[in-house]
Amino acid sequence: MLKINDIHKSFGKNEILKGVDLSIDKGDVVVILGPSGSGKTTLLRCINFLERADSGNATFGDLQVNLHDASKKDIHAIRQKTAFVFQNYNLFNNKTAIENVTEGLIIGRKIPKADAIAIGKKALDKVGLSDKYDSYPSQLSGGQQQRVGIARAVALNPDIILFDEPTSALDPELVGEVLTVMKNIANEGTTMLVVTHEMSFAKDVASHVIFMDGGVVVEEGSSHDIFVSPKEERTKKFLKRVLPEDYTFYI
């Protein structure tokens, strides 16, 4: 459904992405792992044109675009098919939870207001915030804000949701509620591309795991392939660092 070919991106002289390929089918939950600075977030941002890639192609269903010189129309079309969940939530501070969710529906997708509100309430119910419709982001905890962020993405009913380290800015005790919501929507068959440092999520939920380092895909496979029998030395080293010492025991 989504195919990325040979994507390159540099910031100044610093080459972040050195030719990454990616392929996602409908219903996949693809998790990208890797150390900081490996280009995971940049890859995600280039897919949604929050950064402009230097080169590369994307095939999105029957839509084919060049990631470097896509037209405004193409960018709009891709954004209609995707939704993005940000590390820092990026909720609209001047809008209530329900307005955050309906904004893209009413303004971006021209859905009638009453329908949008019904969709928005359903999305907020799904993430367990049925009592927070009219709260402003300043009145919500980090975990609640991120759940609104996920509801905002889910409500758009996109072909794929891109998650950029959705739990990295959260207090440890709030991570669980967000991961639970993500697991639930994954189980509903939502196609997801997730950059995360949550190994448990990758192990339990991912249908496909990609390990990136230094701007390239080092290794990819099922979560079992990556976590139990990694082939590349870099992958092994990384897993040793991020997993508990007795991880062999866990598995």
């Binding site: 949604n48 044109f49 929050l50 709009h76 954004r79 209609q80 995707t82 939704a83 993005f84 940000f86 990026n90 909720l91 609209f92 501070n93 001047n94 809008k95 904004e103 893209g104 303004i107 971006g108 997708r109 905002r152 758009l156």
Partner: peptide
Amino acid sequence: QLEAAQSVGLSNFQAYRRI
């Protein structure tokens, strides 16, 4: 804020005016 607005399909003009 601008990125979030763009990601839900708002144009730059709409993002500025509303957010």
